[in-house]
Computed example of a mutant assay.
Amino acid sequence: MRPAQGLGFIYLSLITALLLTVIPVPFQFSLFRPDWVLLVLMYWTLALPRRVNIGTAFFMGFLTDVLVGTVLGVNALAFSVVAFVMAVNHLQIRNFGVIQQSLLVGLLLALYQLLLFWLSNFLTGVNFRPAFLWPVLTGMLVWPWLFWFLRRYRRKLKIQ
């Protein structure tokens, strides 16, 4: 497969994650919505750290800020920090089993939520609510399925 086609699938998966982030759902379910963009970014950073890196994470975070309507740069910074941690440790994380990866993804999602809270509290005075942590739990539960799905298509399309 040509490199441009592989990059096209990567960006298609990221755009799909953006759509899953902004698609309307009932309020009761919106509290449990996983951070789709960050999960897909973590997968691609783990699988192909030279193609999807901190710059991609910053750009996708900026797009997420625009689409969701948060203060510009909040998601961009938080995505970049998580992508950095994932990229630096990608060789060790690849050797983990899917359950261990899911637990680590949960820690990184908790770091992301903590960064979002700190930045939002500093900029707009948001108070902490335990509901901030529901996406961490759902992200951990979604990770094995997302990992399997994206890895299957990455191998099928021979994306390197």
Rank of each mutant, 00 (worst) to 15 (best):
S13L: 04
S13F: 07
L14C: 02
I15W: 15
I15R: 03
A17Q: 09
A17M: 10
A17W: 11
L18Y: 05
L18E: 15
L20V: 08
V22Y: 05
I23T: 14
V25M: 11
V25L: 15
P26R: 14
F27H: 10
F29Y: 14
S30P: 02
S30V: 10
S30W: 08
F32N: 07
R33W: 01
R33A: 04
P34R: 01
P34N: 10
P34V: 06
V37H: 09
V37W: 04
L38P: 14
L38Q: 09
L38T: 09
L39N: 00
L39E: 02
L39Y: 00
V40C: 12
V40T: 15
Y43K: 04
Y43I: 12
Y43C: 10
Y43A: 13
W44V: 00
W44D: 02
W44L: 05
L48E: 14
L48D: 10
L48I: 08
P49V: 02
R51N: 09
V52G: 01
V52D: 02
V52R: 07
V52Q: 06
N53K: 08
N53C: 12
I54K: 03
T56L: 03
T56Y: 01
T56S: 14
A57S: 00
F58P: 05
F58S: 08
F59R: 04
G61A: 06
F62M: 15
L63W: 10
L63G: 13
T64L: 05
T64W: 04
V66Y: 08
T70F: 05
G73E: 00
G73T: 01
